[in-house]
Write a protein that binds this DNA or RNA. Structure first.
Lengths: 188, 188
DNA sequence: GAAAAGATTTACCGATCTGTTCATCTTGGC
DNA sequence: GCCAAGATGAACAGATCGGTAAATCTTTTC
């Protein structure tokens, strides 16, 4: 299997898991929808869990690339990027394919502390936190790590509520909160 | 089946669904762990989905009762209750049985907009929002509904991150953010 | 063009899924 | 003590689960 085919398989499996859930998506369906026979899939991934982990790696890469780039496009200065985060989220929420955060859902279905899927989901959130903390530092804001943690909490809460309510409003609500927190960390 | 037995069945099923997930928990396991035969369960609940909905109703009642009472116990004034919320969450996070928000997980596994499980999960969040908005109004805070929406976002984000990281820290992080938002809505 | 390597189809494995059938057993009311 | 109602275990449907075996078909390589 070529690298392209393999990536394409992971990409399509990602869509299925993201849209339908992990337990709810069987490997027969994955084979049917990817056009790759189940035998071939199991040649390249020893278990369903390994395939899930591969989809999460791809998602992590794609999502962070998209989000960080979009934040920078919307508002280059580091301080403004922390607010543009919520505009980017708003764009995401309004997409018809939006179904919440894949890592939250993965962690919810495989929630044991040491389960590789949960570990990988947590790693994704840690990388987001790092990025926000770096931006807060570059913007010379007070207590950059504490602020970054708060921004991350606002982001996750907005995603959860947007997915559940099928509404984009939480992006604006969270942005207003973030504006005040950033202003306080900047002004004083 | 007596009302007590029925409630006990729902309570034990709730624990199983909450700890293991919905798709991952089979009805055979529910029968085994509740001590109620599968035949009897299906006499009282036509489908697994109906049993899940019953567990969510019980959870909604128990959780809101506990949370609202605890918030009031910790800090009677309405304005302080909105901050005590996060202390109550901290207590919840530190319990060994804590596994995140059952409604977020239910919504993640049954995420179709019109699915009864998702509808019921959303209704739970709406009731929380109402309560927070009432408290904000009673405390005479600016834009009480907007503040309530922000508090709710902080709460959901803190729960998600606490569950994923197996740490109670998000409760304190969210509280610090809430303190500032409440102060701004109070002072100005 | 032949040999080797990889992908495919098809069928299968045993386990588990939701939900049902049925014959037996327990229980409460009179 | 008797009858009816309800609960039970056990077996069973039919489908699907994750995962595999073996034979056939394609593709690459030399």
């Amino acid at each position: 299997m070529s690298q392209n085919k393999r990536t394409e398989l992971i990409r399509k499996a990602l869509d299925l898991f993201y849209q339908n859930g992990f337990h709810a998506t069987g490997m027969d369906l994955v084979a049917e929808r990817t056009g790759v026979s189940k035998t071939s899939i199991y040649k390249h991934f020893r278990t369903k869990e390994e395939l899930i982990l591969a989809t999460l790696r791809l998602r992590d890469e794609n999502f962070r690339n998209w989000l960080f780039r979009r934040m920078q496009e919307l508002a280059p200065p580091p301080e403004d990027q922390l607010l543009a985060l919520f505009d980017a989220l708003g764009e995401w929420f309004s997409q018809s394919t939006f179904r919440g955060c894949m890592f939250i859902k993965a962690s919810a279905e495989y929630q044991d502390r040491d389960h590789p899927i949960n570990v990988q989901a947590m790693e994704h959130k840690r990388l987001l936190l790092e990025h926000f903390a770096n931006l807060a530092e570059q913007a010379d804001l007070d207590e950059p790590r504490a602020l970054a943690a708060q921004i991350l909490i606002l982001k996750e809460g907005a995603i959860v509520l947007a997915a559940m309510s099928h509404s984009g409003a939480p992006a604006q609500d969270a942005k207003r909160a973030a504006e005040r927190l950033v202003a306080l960390a900047s002004g004083s």
